[in-house]
């Protein structure tokens, strides 16, 4: 390539780049509208009068009935469902991190490689088991163990269900940690328990937060199994209350959408506060695996 050609090429490239950049910007803005549209629509319907919500739900509200929110709040018994979901999610993810962290540590570090490799693969197989395959026996099992109609029962079930993914992530991460610190600690004569909590667990911080986030979201939004297990309204979670609200008052758009907005708020607020960590956590969770 001669230098003149190269300059020409460069100029063309530059113009092309500017044009492309503007084009991409426009496309991205359009896509942002596509993503936002359902939320805007839901907000609009949620403040309409019952009549307007039914007859012309898609227009901009002519009057604002914020009392819809108060009514929906009341009907759902919002504090209860919020605390139920929070308890199940928090207790669930903490338990998962606790038991799988320990397991991951031993699987990744033990010198008894063959045995623990077998255990590791055994755990990984669980990732492929769809919930529906085990549905019928699971329902029976929960009933036999007296874990139905109990928040703690749900939590304990999650401790089992979410083991494979968490073990997978922990082992992958721990294998990447340099061995020197560990060896030093072992020569110091510290026992495994204190090595784990003093040295390993703090080192595992990034992957722990990833697991907290991934499992936290899946537990928070879980629906089908809680629907079968938690039949009392005092035990309802947010997903369940969305379902029951739709069943009971779904024909009253103004209330239903107030309820939808209210039930989406906690996770959206959490997302906006922790956005950076969540996105990082998801990305590292997948790529590390």
């Amino acid at each position: 390539m001669t230098s003149i050609d190269y300059q020409k090429y460069n100029k063309r490239m530059k113009m092309f780049k500017v044009g492309r950049k503007a084009g991409v910007q426009i496309v991205m803005t359009l896509l942002a509208i596509v993503i936002l549209y359902p939320f805007v629509m839901a907000l609009g319907v949620s403040v309409k009068s019952p009549m307007e919500a039914l007859l012309s739900p898609e227009t901009f509200p002519t009057e604002f009935h914020f009392e819809n929110y108060a009514e929906a709040w009341e009907i759902m018994d919002y504090p209860t469902i919020f605390l139920n979901t929070t308890f199940i999610t928090v207790a669930g993810v903490l338990g998962i991190v606790f038991i799988t962290g320990l397991a991951g540590y031993v699987i990744a570090w033990s010198r008894c490689k063959r045995f623990y490799n077998f255990i590791y693969v055994f755990f990984l197989c669980g990732m492929m088991v769809p919930f529906y395959t085990a549905l019928v026996p699971l329902v029976k099992l929960m009933s036999d163990l007296h874990l139905t109609n109990s928040r703690l029962g749900m939590v304990i079930y999650y401790w089992g269900r979410n083991v494979p993914m968490a073990v997978f992530l922990y082992v992958g991460f721990i294998r990447g940690i340099s061995g020197e610190i560990m060896e030093a600690a072992e020569i110091d004569g510290a026992n495994r328990w204190s090595i784990y909590w003093r040295i390993m667990f703090p080192l595992m911080k990034p992957i722990t937060s990833t697991i907290l986030i991934l499992d936290g979201m899946s537990l928070w939004n879980d629906f089908l199994f809680p629907r079968m297990m938690l039949t009392k309204s005092a035990l309802r979670t947010i997903s369940l209350s969305q379902y029951y609200f739709t069943g009971e008052l779904g024909t009253q758009y103004h209330l239903a959408f107030s309820a939808y907005i209210l039930t989406m708020l906690p996770i959206m607020i959490a997302y906006f506060c922790l956005q950076k960590y969540i996105i990082k956590g998801v990305a590292s969770g997948a790529v590390k695996g």
């Binding site: 606790f98 038991i99 799988t100 320990l102 397991a103 540590y105 031993v106 699987i107 033990s110 008894c112 623990y116 255990i119 755990f123 669980g126 088991v129 395959t133 085990a134 549905l135 019928v136 026996p137 699971l138 029976k140 099992l141 304990i156 079930y157 401790w159 089992g160 269900r161 083991v163 494979p164 073990v167 495994r192 784990y196």
Partner: peptide
């Protein structure tokens, strides 16, 4: 003692994933 570290995860996994799968 090392194996004890894996036991909790293994127990919950066996009870809530493996057993129902075999049951299914």
């Amino acid at each position: 003692s090392e194996f004890l570290f894996v036991v909790p995860a293994l127990v919950f996994y066996l009870v809530f994933v493996v057993y129902p799968l075999l049951g299914g």
